[in-house]
Amino acid sequence: HHGSGALAALHADGPHAGLPVTRSDARVLIFNDWEERKRSEPWLRLDMSDKAIFRRYPHLR
């Protein structure tokens, strides 16, 4: 199991509170979210491209 239990660094406060600090933090969040959702949506594709990251977390651009 590759990303399970990996912890992402999140901004503690300010405008980005609760959001990932780096792209690799964002990838951890996206992976964990996908892993949760694919139980009920097995067709869901995992997209951890930069484009997917920016779409979801525009502050990382």
Rank of each mutant, 00 (worst) to 15 (best):
R39L: 14
R55T: 15
K38M: 07
L44N: 04
D25N: 02
H1Q: 11
E36N: 10
L10P: 10
F31W: 08
T22G: 06
R61N: 08
H1M: 10
A8I: 09
R55N: 13
L19C: 09
D33H: 05
G5S: 08
T22E: 04
H16F: 14
D25V: 15
R37A: 06
H11C: 08
V21N: 04
E41C: 14
L60V: 00
A9Q: 13
L44E: 07
A52G: 14
T22I: 14
A9W: 08
V28D: 03
A6L: 15
L19E: 05
A6F: 11
R23A: 10
F31Y: 12
A52P: 02
P20R: 01
L44Q: 07
H1W: 12
E36T: 10
M48N: 03
E36M: 12
R27V: 06
P58D: 01
R27M: 10
L7N: 09
A8M: 05
P42Y: 04
E36R: 11
Y57A: 00
S40A: 10
P42T: 04
L46A: 02
A8V: 13
V28N: 05
G3T: 12
M48Y: 06
Y57W: 14
A52E: 15
H1Y: 11
G5Y: 07
A17M: 10
G3V: 12
K51W: 09
D25F: 02
F31Q: 05
V28E: 04
N32L: 14
R39P: 09
G3S: 10
E41V: 05
F54T: 08
S24M: 13
K38N: 07
K51Q: 11
E41K: 07
I30M: 08
W43E: 12
R23D: 06
S40W: 08
H2V: 11
T22D: 05
A12K: 12
A9I: 12
A9V: 13
R39N: 10
E35K: 14
W34E: 01
L29E: 03
H16A: 04
Y57H: 00
A12Q: 11
P20E: 10
I30V: 05
K51M: 09
I30N: 00
K38W: 07
D47I: 03
R37V: 03
P58Q: 02
R55Q: 14
G5P: 14
A6I: 13
A52D: 08
G14N: 04
W43K: 10
R23C: 14
A8K: 15
P15A: 12
S4T: 14
D50Q: 05
A12G: 07
H11S: 03
P20F: 15
D13G: 08
L10E: 04
G18E: 03
D47A: 02
E35V: 15
R56G: 02
A6R: 14
L44K: 04
L19D: 11
F31T: 07
A9Y: 09
W43T: 10
N32E: 12
D13T: 11
A12C: 13
R37H: 06
T22L: 03
F54H: 09
L29M: 07
G3H: 12
V28P: 00
E41S: 04
V28C: 12
L19I: 02
S24H: 14
D47E: 04
L29F: 03
E41W: 06
H2Q: 10
R39M: 10
A26K: 00
D50W: 15
R23M: 15
S24Y: 12
A17V: 10
R55E: 15
D25L: 02
H59W: 02
R61W: 08
D25A: 06
E35T: 13
E36S: 11
P15E: 06
G18M: 09
A8S: 05
R23E: 06
R45N: 08
L29C: 07
L19F: 04
L60C: 00
V28R: 11
L29A: 05
A9K: 14
E36A: 11
I53T: 01
S4N: 10
S40C: 14
H59C: 00
D13Y: 09
D13Q: 09
N32D: 10
V28T: 08
G5C: 14
W43G: 13
D33T: 05
S49N: 02
A12F: 08
L10V: 10
S40D: 13
H59I: 00
R23S: 07
E36I: 13
H16V: 04
G14E: 03
A52I: 06
S40M: 09
S4Y: 12
W43C: 13
R39V: 11
R45F: 06
P20A: 00
L46I: 04
P42G: 05
A6N: 10
Y57C: 01
A52N: 07
A12I: 11
W34N: 00
M48L: 14
L29Y: 02
K38T: 08
G5H: 12
P58W: 01
W43L: 10
D33A: 09
L10I: 09
P42S: 05
R45K: 15
G5N: 10
E36Y: 13
G5F: 09
A9C: 15
R61C: 11
D47H: 02
A8D: 04
F31L: 07
A6E: 08
M48A: 04
K38H: 12
S49H: 02
P42D: 04
E35D: 15
L19N: 04
L10H: 05
A17T: 08
V21I: 13
H1T: 11
S4E: 11
L44V: 07
H59K: 00
K51N: 10
F54A: 07
D25P: 00
E36P: 01
V28Q: 08
D50E: 08
S49W: 02
I53G: 05
R37T: 04
G5M: 10
G3K: 13
F31P: 00
H59S: 02
N32A: 12
F31K: 10
V21M: 15
I30R: 15
H11W: 13
V28Y: 06
H11D: 03
L46E: 01
A17Y: 08
L19S: 02
